[in-house]
Computed example of a mutant assay.
Amino acid sequence: MQPGDKVVVSANVVVFNHPQHRGEAFDMQGSSGEVVSVLNEWKGRPISPTLPVIVAFGRYKAHFRSDELSVAD
C-alpha cells in the first residue's frame, strides 16, 4: 500500500474514539478511506510498528494492519 491509495476496511475493527460515536464501540468494517502514510522508519532508522498503516476517513485518522484493509476499486 502506498500513500494516496483508496482502501476499504475488510475486517472487524472496533474503535472507541470515532468522533461520531465517542465512548461507545463502533465497527469500522466497510468504511472507506485514503492511506495517509505507512510507517516503516523513524528518524532514518527502520521500525516495525504493530499498526503501520494510517488511514484517513475525512478528518478522522486510524491505524491499521495491512491485512485489515483491501484496496478499493
Results as ranks from 00 to 15, higher is better:
residue 44 G to C: 08
residue 16 F to L: 14
residue 73 D to Y: 09
residue 54 I to H: 06
residue 20 Q to C: 06
residue 59 R to L: 14
residue 4 G to H: 04
residue 28 M to Q: 00
residue 50 T to Q: 12
residue 1 M to L: 15
residue 33 G to A: 04
residue 43 K to S: 13
residue 69 L to H: 00
residue 38 V to P: 01
residue 32 S to P: 07
residue 34 E to H: 08
residue 20 Q to R: 10
residue 32 S to V: 13
residue 1 M to A: 14
residue 15 V to Y: 03
residue 2 Q to I: 08
residue 4 G to K: 04
residue 7 V to W: 02
residue 65 R to D: 03
residue 62 A to H: 06
residue 8 V to A: 10
residue 25 A to L: 03
residue 24 E to Y: 02
residue 67 D to F: 08
residue 12 N to Y: 10
residue 2 Q to R: 11
residue 4 G to A: 01
residue 33 G to M: 01
residue 29 Q to W: 09
residue 21 H to D: 05
residue 17 N to T: 12
residue 40 N to H: 14
residue 13 V to S: 01
residue 39 L to G: 07
residue 5 D to G: 05
residue 60 Y to S: 01
residue 39 L to C: 07
residue 25 A to T: 03
residue 12 N to I: 13
residue 36 V to K: 02
residue 16 F to I: 08
residue 17 N to F: 13
residue 26 F to W: 04
residue 55 V to F: 06
residue 20 Q to I: 04
residue 49 P to K: 01
residue 51 L to W: 12
residue 71 V to K: 14
residue 54 I to T: 09
residue 22 R to Y: 07
residue 57 F to P: 03
residue 65 R to G: 01
residue 72 A to Q: 11
residue 60 Y to L: 03
residue 10 S to I: 07
residue 44 G to Q: 09
residue 44 G to N: 06
residue 1 M to H: 13
residue 67 D to E: 11
residue 20 Q to T: 09
residue 25 A to K: 05
residue 28 M to C: 01
residue 29 Q to A: 12
residue 17 N to I: 09
residue 39 L to D: 13
residue 6 K to N: 11
residue 10 S to W: 04
residue 37 S to E: 14
residue 62 A to E: 05
residue 4 G to I: 02
residue 64 F to Y: 07
residue 19 P to M: 09
residue 12 N to C: 11
residue 15 V to E: 06
residue 45 R to H: 14
residue 16 F to M: 14
residue 63 H to S: 15
residue 37 S to N: 14
residue 58 G to C: 08
residue 47 I to Q: 04
residue 59 R to G: 10
residue 3 P to R: 00
residue 15 V to W: 03
residue 17 N to E: 14
residue 10 S to V: 05
residue 35 V to R: 02
residue 36 V to C: 04
residue 51 L to P: 05
residue 43 K to H: 15
residue 50 T to I: 09
residue 60 Y to W: 12
residue 1 M to D: 09
residue 59 R to Q: 15
residue 37 S to A: 15
residue 36 V to N: 04
residue 59 R to E: 15
residue 41 E to G: 11
residue 41 E to D: 15
residue 21 H to E: 06
residue 46 P to N: 06
residue 60 Y to Q: 02
residue 32 S to W: 09
residue 73 D to R: 07
residue 46 P to L: 11
residue 7 V to C: 03
residue 15 V to Q: 07
